[in-house]
Computed example of a mutant assay.
Amino acid sequence: MEWIDTHAHIYDEQFTEDIADVLNRCQEASVNRIYMPNIDHTTVDAMLELEHRYPEQCIPMMGLHPCSVKKDFERELYLVEEWLGKRSFVAVGEIGLDYYWDTTFKEQQQEAFRIQIDLAKKHQLPIVIHTRDSFENAIQIVEELNSDDLTGIFHCFTGSVEEGERITDAGFYLGLGGVSTFKNSGMNDVIPHLNVDKIVLETDSPYLAPTPHRGKRNEPSYIPLIGEKVAEFTKTTPETIAEKTNQNAYRLFSKAES
């Protein structure tokens, strides 16, 4: 049984000292592909170095995270566009809106989100979307700019059944991670009603480790724990969830990887 982690920041400095051990544990857990979303210009080198060292396991995206959208966001977006033009990436991400920490650059976040959606269309790539305290704004922008050739993942989905349906109706996938295993997250009432053909699994490492590792550093080898919980909620088997979510991930990223 093979698993895929569609969202992990394993180039983060928290993994600097033991990345080889982390990736060995991934192989032991049969997590054989790890998709890495970018944050901003400060993370590109570390991400691409990891791809260089482990090209079969570690697969990069390119984008500007909403929490890195500041006064100089246009300069950051120029670098994103430059990278997308000179080599291949599997997605434009991690992009989106985050109003949780600070709304100082709310309008700039929205503009950066729109620009990166246009870049994804230009390069025929999926998008990986971050939303925090901003779902309604984000889905409105996606619905406004949506087209037949646009797809992607709403990463770290923790919303309602209705929000999940709105996302999948737009042609997007739902990224389920460690929060799905939290006892009081409410996801036990939501996941049974989601379309399994529109689900992918993720860790968001090093953040949001699943139970029983909650509060500790997350890593991609914990993907099976998430898959097992999704299987429990959907009254199916881990093997079925692994097969379905892998198919979904390959379907989403295959065009860019071919």
Rank of each mutant, 00 (worst) to 15 (best):
L77C: 15
Y35V: 03
I115G: 04
L150M: 14
T151L: 13
E51C: 11
H130A: 07
E76W: 08
C26W: 00
F89E: 02
P37R: 01
H41K: 03
I127V: 15
G96Q: 00
T43Q: 10
S160Y: 13
T151N: 14
T131H: 05
T43E: 10
A120W: 01
I129A: 02
D133R: 11
G85H: 15
L23N: 01
F135Y: 07
D102G: 12
A91N: 01
L150H: 12
I39K: 05
H65F: 14
N38A: 15
N38K: 04
T131D: 02
Y99C: 14
D72W: 06
G152A: 08
R33Q: 10
C67M: 13
E107L: 12
Y99S: 06
T103K: 11
I129S: 01
R53P: 10
Q27C: 13
E49R: 13
N24A: 15
L97V: 09
Q108F: 07
L48H: 10
L150R: 06
K71T: 06
E143N: 14
D40R: 08
L23R: 03
F135C: 06
M61F: 09
A46H: 05
V44D: 09
E144H: 15
G96V: 01
D133F: 11
L77W: 09
F89M: 03
D18W: 13
E76T: 03
E74Y: 11
E76R: 06
D118M: 14
N24R: 11
T42C: 13
L23W: 07
A138H: 01
C67F: 07
Q108N: 12
G63E: 00
F113N: 02
S68H: 08
M62R: 01
E28G: 11
V90Y: 00
R87N: 05
D72V: 05
H130W: 07
Y99P: 03
S68N: 05
H130T: 08
I34N: 05
S134R: 03
S160V: 06
A112N: 02
H52N: 10
D133Q: 14
T42W: 05
P66I: 01
Q116R: 04
K86P: 06
T43H: 05
K122Y: 14
F89Y: 04
N32K: 09
S134E: 05
